[in-house]
């Protein structure tokens, strides 16, 4: 993947050029306003850069026709700090929702959903509603939902931002396990403990620029 862009809007990113290989686990770190979350938005094509090109899974995203975007997003998974679960649906229903709205049959959902919930460690809690689950469990549901379509890339925007340190570590173990299945993980964070523990590639940003790109790095 290569991305190069110059953006004028806030928080802006300027002239950055990064390439991430398939199967990598990459942290984007840096202070608030450094443009970390903008990276996620650009990768999802929620936003487009003013200048430059972005390749994700060998597809050029910036010039992509809008009707192709839904199909493109099916090759990505995404988790957020605030989980973004539907409060009126159970854990299993939240995961199934992601399958149903892209046209997968109920039969497929019935087979795949318990599998992925088991994988994220929520076996036996399929029928709980989000408010009946802890923060860490809610984030597991969100990860299950992001992973259920077996995406090539998983984007994580501060996934541990709302969690206590112990729960954060568990979530990171889960992401690490997903990474080992061959899924590329791009994670935005400013949780220094986690970055230091994981010892993965770290890209540090400041004021819209990349100031450090280090394999097996620490928070700094």
């Amino acid at each position: 993947m290569t991305k190069k862009y110059a953006r004028a809007s806030r928080p802006s990113i300027e002239d950055i050029n990064v390439s991430i290989d398939k199967g990598e686990f990459v942290f984007f770190i840096g202070p608030t306003g450094a443009g970390k979350s903008t990276i996620i938005k650009l990768l999802l094509r929620e936003e487009t850069p003013n200048k430059g090109k972005i390749w994700v899974n060998d597809k050029e995203v910036v010039g992509m026709r809008s009707w192709r975007v839904p199909a493109f997003r099916r090759s990505l998974g995404c988790v957020f700090q605030d989980f973004r679960l539907l409060p009126t649906r159970t854990a299993a229903e939240n995961v199934a929702f992601a399958l149903e709205v892209i046209g997968k049959s109920k039969t497929v959902a019935r087979r795949v959903v318990p599998e992925v919930l088991e994988l994220v460690g929520l076996g036996g809690k399929e029928h709980r509603y989000p408010h009946e689950l802890s923060g860490g469990e809610q984030q597991r549901v969100a990860i299950a939902r992001a992973f259920v379509n077996r995406p090539l890339v998983l984007l994580a925007d501060e996934p541990t931002g709302n969690l206590d340190p112990d729960t954060s570590v568990e979530i990171m173990r889960l992401l690490d396990r997903i990474n080992r299945t061959g899924t590329t993980i791009v994670m935005v964070t400013h949780d220094s403990n986690i970055v230091n523990q994981m010892r993965r590639r770290v890209i540090e940003m400041e004021g819209g620029h990349v100031v450090r790109d280090q394999a097996r790095g620490v928070y700094g």
Partner: peptide
């Protein structure tokens, strides 16, 4: 919320 998630996971526009 539903719409945001549908768009995120790649539901088609017509859907």
């Amino acid at each position: 919320r539903e719409v945001a998630i549908m768009k995120l996971v790649g539901a088609s526009n017509w859907f």
